[in-house]
Design a protein around this nucleic acid. Structure first.
Length: 260
DNA sequence: ATGTCGCCTACGAGGCGA
């Protein structure tokens, strides 16, 4: 089984990139973030034409997550939002979508950005991560051997080397100690980064501004975190840097793992 | 370089979020 996560930054704008990539990728499952549309606006037919069905969670022009999967796969236990997921500004945002494929539990996750260290969105981000970790910990306590993966845009650079210049990010979100502690908490509950051991180098995101991609001034903020049973099945991984090239790319690229 | 995108509203251009 081959699965991937990709912050597409609007599926309507990105279909000309996502559909050809998916058609040529032999992926079984693609978790997407920032689809930026309602379900009725999602280009479902373009996915169906290349043999994929789609699960969608989107409310308006912000956020939104989806999961595309080969139409030969059986999907069960579709879950919109995770239990205990906090609200922002009184609203439950479309940032988490769970689904199980042949016994493998996958989550497409778009972690809140945080905006600024003194912004309410930052507290929301930390709370969101804490609640997610609590949910995953409970789930793993109930079924320690389950194959589970958290896939998505975590909006955290866990290491200084995950940004092109740590000094540029002084006082910014994505690199603060509380965010990094929140990220490390997943490893402590038994869900670890399954890509980094196989792909130690490389960014997953480059801002559209300031020639960031040509200068390779990026960030590693998109991850696949797997339970022990999931991690044991991972045979290879890749960061699809070429998807940042050419016409009309997302600012993020796909992160892929192959399972035995 | 104040250097980009994509969405909204509402039909031009500004606001928001990332």
């Amino acid at each position: 089984m081959r699965i991937a996560t990709w912050n597409v930054n609007s599926i309507r704008a990105r279909a000309p990139r996502v559909i050809p990539y998916l058609a040529g990728s032999n992926l079984d499952v693609l978790a997407m973030q920032e689809i930026k549309c309602k379900p009725e606006q999602f280009p479902v037919e373009a996915f169906q034409e290349i043999g994929y069905d789609v699960i969608i969670l989107g409310h308006n022009q912000w956020n939104g997550v989806a999961v595309a999967y080969k139409n030969s796969l059986a999907v069960t236990d579709i879950e919109e939002h995770f239990p205990g997921q906090p609200e922002f500004d009184g609203k439950l945002e479309p940032r988490a979508l769970g689904a199980t494929f042949d016994g493998t539990r996958l989550w497409s996750l778009y972690v809140p950005n945080g905006r600024e260290l003194d912004h309410p969105h930052y507290d929301y981000k930390l709370e969101w991560l804490d609640r997610l970790a609590s949910h995953v910990a409970e789930s793993l306590e109930a079924d320690p051997d389950q194959e589970l993966a958290l896939m998505g845009d975590f909006n955290i650079a866990p290491l200084d080397s995950d940004v092109w210049d740590i000094n540029f990010f002084a006082g910014s979100t994505h690199v603060s100690e509380p965010e990094r502690i929140a990220f490390e908490a997943f490893e402590q509950i038994g869900v670890k980064d399954v890509v980094r051991p196989l792909v130690p180098e490389g960014f997953t995101y480059w801002d559209y501004k300031d020639l960031r991609f040509p200068r390779n001034e990026g960030m590693r903020i998109d991850f696949i975190l797997g339970s022990n049973s999931f991690a044991e099945r991972v045979t290879s991984a890749s960061i699809e840097r070429n998807e940042r090239k050419g016409e009309g790319p997302s600012d993020h690229v796909p992160v892929v793992v192959e399972l035995s």
